[in-house]
């Protein structure tokens, strides 16, 4: 399963890319693989306040539905509108074109609750 080096990860298989107090969020390759073909995503609205590990998006595939949790707290400042038309982009490009939202972070300390790519890879091995 692919991971990207400079990203941080959660146990619920979300990734976050932090740059200057803002961040891009998405779901990992492992997450898209286990969901299967994604058919729909319910995106948050710009302006929504999200909490670390709080539900903020739900994704559906043909036979599963699951919640996506925000890796960190903050305010949603942009969402990937392309996913409304083309949710399958998450399957094709989970770390790039399949990004879900951008967040203005409210607490950078929260990073310490996340895993590095290396730790996440080990975590994936441990959950089998």
């Amino acid at each position: 399963m692919e991971t990207v080096e400079h990203l941080l990860y959660t146990k619920e298989h979300e990734w976050i890319n932090i740059e200057d107090g803002e961040a891009t969020v998405g779901i990992s390759d492992y997450a898209q693989e286990s969901l299967g073909d994604i058919t729909f995503i319910e995106l948050p609205s710009v302006g929504d306040e999200v909490e670390q590990f709080g539900e903020f998006v739900s994704v559906e595939s043909v036979k599963a539905a699951s919640d996506v949790f925000s890796p960190m707290s903050g305010e949603v400042i942009a969402v990937n509108e392309d996913l409304n038309e083309n949710p399958g982009m998450i399957n094709k490009s989970p770390y790039e074109k399949g990004w879900i939202a951008r967040i203005k972070l409210s607490d950078s300390e929260e990073q310490s609750n996340l895993m590095t790519a290396d730790e996440y890879s080990k975590f994936l091995v441990s959950v089998g």
Partner: peptide
């Protein structure tokens, strides 16, 4: 034969 369920949902 087997239906394309992904298409049905998208």
């Amino acid at each position: 034969t087997r239906p394309d369920e992904v298409k049905a949902a998208r």
